[in-house]
Design a protein around this nucleic acid. Structure first.
Lengths: 193, 193
DNA sequence: CCCGTGTTGGATCGATCGGTACAGTAATCT
DNA sequence: AGATTACTGTACCGATCGATCCAACACGGG
């Protein structure tokens, strides 16, 4: 029952992340988080300190894990915007189709609740979205197009990416979402080619 | 203080709608709704019955008001998919730029919290999104393209539409959002032309 | 072997949640 | 004017929120 730590912190963060992801910050009660992680109140506060501290850890875990996947996609097809965008969106499509993980997107979920988040978490979410836009934008540099066109294109890709997550919450079929991604990839290819 | 009804029901629904819109269902406490509408608990429950009954009224008001705007946009340019989509998305852009109304979109907000909504409201939200997809789809009929292409196109337009709302919550500048809409309109024009 | 370090689960805190009950009051009808 | 009706504000309900506290406990070092 006690003694040395009886749970893996990373595993607990992963499980908590999925609760935040599915339910959002406010609706992720400590009871829900506790039963998802298997932790009692003592272990919980001993390991994480507070609900929003844990939430920030979950945001980091999310952006680290999926950020790496997006990064790989973005660097796989340098100079080929259409393929690049396709690979980028495919990361999201794969996640949506993964039954081991909630529908939607933790960032989109958090954006919806942005005004009600604790200030630290609010800033954190904003930074993650900006960082994603910047990474996409960086993947487009080198293409011969005006700078503001690349900005618009990056925002477009991030926008479509978020939209896939939103629609997946309403059980829009994967086939349709794949078509949306394909259309967006063609658009990006034309816009920057 | 009492006697005959001392408030306008429509006005109260409008104000409550904005609270749900900004904060989502769970975070829209009765106190928040009460102070936004100026209603005490007695009047509140006398007029609406329950929180989720009011929420459904707000969903209806939202979809009626903006649904009419979308409808007008969709029927303004028959046979011209690019203009049609542009007009459709412009409804959302106008709403986003309107300081009298919260950022984002009540439907997107509700989708994020879908699993936690009362069952009746959950079904209602789903229907509204499906209805929108159907209306867009209907606006595309008559174009010479295969049926499933029109389906994909409709989903694409609805997706981009939702993405504008999501990004507006993160204070992405209107200029960028307008570019996203323009790109999407061109895509739709090519895809169905 | 047994003490001390540190984790554990549950009891409990004040605040707030959605919802109810009810006394008080203003407007309408006879 | 008096009775009736209908709406309002507030006090209050049990449940649940995030957070704190603490007694009970298991393990590692002396």
């Amino acid at each position: 029952m006690a003694g040395r730590k009886q749970f893996d912190v990373d595993t607990a963060v992963e499980q908590a992340m999925q609760v935040f992801w599915l339910r959002g910050y406010a609706d992720a009660s400590l009871d829900a988080l506790g039963s998802a992680t298997g932790l009692g109140r003592g272990s919980f506060y001993g390991a994480f300190g507070s609900k929003d501290a844990l939430f920030r850890k979950c945001l980091d875990r999310y952006s680290t894990f999926y950020g790496a996947q997006y990064e790989r996609a973005l660097s796989a097809y340098p100079g080929e915007p259409a393929r690049l965008v396709e690979a980028f969106l495919a990361v999201t499509l794969r996640r949506i189709a993964d039954p081991a993980v909630p529908a939607g997107c933790l960032i989109a979920q958090s954006l919806a609740q942005l005004p009600m988040l604790p200030p630290d978490s609010r800033a954190h979410v904003r930074e993650l979205l900006d960082a994603q836009r910047e990474r996409v934008r960086a993947a487009f540099t080198g293409l011969d197009a005006e700078s503001n066109v690349l900005d618009d294109l990056a925002t477009y890709v991030v926008a479509v990416n978020q939209s896939l997550a939103v629609l997946s919450r309403a059980d829009v079929p994967d086939v349709e979402l794949r078509s949306v991604a394909a259309l967006a990839a063609r658009t990006a290819g034309r816009g920057a080619g």
